[in-house]
């Protein structure tokens, strides 16, 4: 884009310029970057000792394994009362984790939004760092850490989901806050409102609908994560997944996977429907 504007502003006669696909600094840098990426890729393939032919072979093999070993899914296992109870508990964990996560992430997002933060020197980096670090660490690692400190059970799973939701919702919330109309904020500030009043009367009304949508989406994603926190001792249906995979009960694993996929699809459809309805209320 840049070369076009420069040639337009400079009064260089067009006839003197020889057009070429190759432009000196840009093309060279681009080739160098692409070459570096390719070299890195090639080096990592050899370093990690990856047999490329196995990549394409993986899918037929996966289908074969699913068809032979996993195929008749053991549906009796998943209609067991204990298992259904664990599904219910997974749902409860995702609701609680999502709720606590959203509640914690709203103030953090307020601090981490550049335009309305309390102080740019202290509060802004603090909010950014809190959101970034809870986002950066995978929910699995959070689960393992909480299980180690607090013991097995749903408390650890709920806390892991809470941290996960703080990272997920906090980022979306602060992005949303940075895009608001600053007019009402300045108006309230100029009449002497304190930061809390500014947040309540100038910021919140602008983002309420978007925040509700984000909160529902957060629950959807939290539910997806909640299905596996049990794998590491966080409670819920993930525990059954771990037990059956370790005992090589493939047909039961297949049944559990089917249940997970079905529930996640339901959650996604439900949250999509709710978000659409809320979007219409705008």
């Amino acid at each position: 884009m840049m070369p076009v504007t420069t040639t337009a502003t400079h009064s260089m006669p067009a006839a003197n310029r020889k057009w070429s696909r190759y432009r000196h600094p840009e093309s060279t840098i681009r080739f160098a970057v692409i070459l570096a990426i390719l070299a890195f890729l090639g080096y990592s393939i050899t370093y990690l000792n990856i047999d490329l032919s196995r990549i394409l072979g993986a899918f037929p093999r996966l289908v074969e394994i699913l068809a032979t070993r996993y195929f008749p899914p053991d549906m009796n296992y998943v209609s067991d009362a204990d298992f259904l109870r664990s599904v219910l508990r997974t749902l409860e964990m995702s609701l609680l984790g999502g709720f606590f996560g959203v509640v914690c992430s709203i103030p953090l997002a307020w601090l981490a939004a550049r335009n309305i933060t309390v102080s740019k020197r202290i509060a802004y980096p603090f909010g950014r760092f809190a959101i970034m670090s809870s986002r950066s660490i995978h929910e699995t690692i959070w689960t393992i850490l909480f299980v180690t400190v607090l013991g097995f059970g749903m408390l650890a799973g709920t806390l892991a989901l809470t941290v996960f939701c703080v990272g997920f919702a906090g980022k979306l919330f602060s992005d949303e806050l940075e895009a608001i109309d600053m007019g009402p904020v300045e108006a309230l500030r100029s009449v002497g409102a304190n930061p809390l009043q500014v947040f309540q009367y100038a910021v919140l009304p602008q983002v309420r609908v978007a925040f509700t949508g984000i909160a529902i989406y957060t629950w959807d994603v939290a539910f997806r994560a909640a299905t596996v926190v049990g794998f590491f001792g966080g409670g819920g249906m993930g525990w059954y997944l771990k037990r059956t995979t370790q005992q090589m009960e493939s047909t039961r694993v297949a049944a559990i996977l089917l249940v997970i996929i079905g529930l996640v699809l339901l959650a996604e459809i439900g949250s999509g429907w709710l978000r659409k309805r809320i979007g219409k209320m705008r």
Partner: peptide, 13 residues
Amino acid sequence: LAWCFWDTIMFDT
């Protein structure tokens, strides 16, 4: 939420 809290955290921990 209160019921979830009771069932998951108070009861299970």
